[in-house]
Design a protein around this nucleic acid. Structure first.
Lengths: 204, 204
DNA sequence: CGCAACACGTGAAAC
DNA sequence: TGTTTCACGTGTTGC
């Protein structure tokens, strides 16, 4: 090293071998200037080195301790992270979109349910538990426009799937006999189901 | 610069001012050594500079063009990305947990389709004109969640009222036999009604 | 021995 | 103005 014999505080001169460049005058100021510059440069180098160290500590995979490879690894890591973020946010967006659709469906049926509450007809309802979450029920109500549709919608909203159903219309009345199954796996009590049906019908 | 007066290929000597360190002999070889070292150092510097440039290009927010700040920004950016990835994956995990039920339902419908195909049940749509705006139709479709509900909704929307209906679910398929009546008094052609039904089913 | 990587001091330029 | 940053050439070290 050219200045290996200098003190650490840069108090040495080590004027370059270029003997005649007309820059050896004002030795004291020149010395001070060089010293300040030297200290600043030392600080700068150390700062950069520290930053590089911090960067290396942040990157999980390190192929080499070299300065260049540290930055290279950091670059590939950043790219990987960006890709991850993109993929994840895409996936999340897709998920949210699908769940939004469901919410829409639900709100739609809720609106329907609210609309059902406007009308008020009380009719006969019978419910029987078959097994598990399967129920059989019989409903006789006065015929109204879209009443069957609304019943089906409401049952669907409550998590019931129609398996075997029979609908008969006669003289302004509708007879519905149906087997339904709770699709979410919850078990309902018979009385509860009956009350549910009556609530629905009350709304129709 | 100590060797600012040197040619770019490093052909200068610029022997350090340290006059007596016993290292000024073999001038030719020393010159060649320095030249090679110089070239290698140039390459190294350029490579590192390029990497730094690439890193800077990858980071969106740049407060300064300084080497140190470039690395600093990269560090904060990496931390931000890591946080993003963590948050997103957490959110996604939560979503997936809540939508597991749906996946179950979907696999259920897939199973239903397989079962249906196994049993040799084919999807079918038949429509027959009874009189006026009354139709009788038979539909055999693969069992899906809310498929019956959606069919009823669609028919209701199109102005059909269900009068006599029978629904049977068996082996992953759903058989619907129904008499419907156009409530608005329009007359529909049979072929038209059948196409309508097929469109609806396609949408389910 | 050569090669590769590094830290150093220094002159010049930028803000 | 001077402080800060940069690129440069060089000596040194480890493989």
């Amino acid at each position: 090293m050219e200045s290996a014999d200098c003190a650490l505080d840069g108090s040495c001169v080590s004027e370059g071998g270029g003997s005649g460049r007309g820059r050896m005058r004002m030795r004291g100021q020149e010395r001070e200037y060089k010293s300040k510059n030297l200290q600043a440069e030392r600080r700068r180098r150390q700062k950069l080195s520290d930053r590089l160290l911090a960067l290396r500590a942040l990157v999980p995979i390190i192929t080499n301790m070299n300065k260049a490879t540290i930055i290279e690894d950091a670059i590939t890591y950043i790219k990987e992270l960006q890709k991850n973020v993109k993929d994840l946010s895409d996936q999340l967006l897709e998920m949210e979109a699908s769940s939004e659709e469901e919410a829409k469906q639900r709100s739609k049926t809720i609106d329907a349910a609210e609309e059902m509450n406007k009308c008020g007809i009380e009719e006969d309802v019978q419910a029987t538990h078959i097994d598990g979450n399967k129920f059989w029920f019989k409903i006789v109500i006065q015929k109204k426009r879209s009443s069957f549709t609304k019943l089906v919608e409401a049952m669907n909203f409550l998590g019931f799937e129609f398996t075997d159903t029979s609908v008969t219309t006669s003289k302004g009345a509708i007879l519905i006999t149906a087997c339904v199954e709770g699709i979410y796996g919850e078990t309902f009590a018979v009385a509860e189901t009956r009350e549910l049906l009556q609530e629905i019908i009350k709304g129709i």
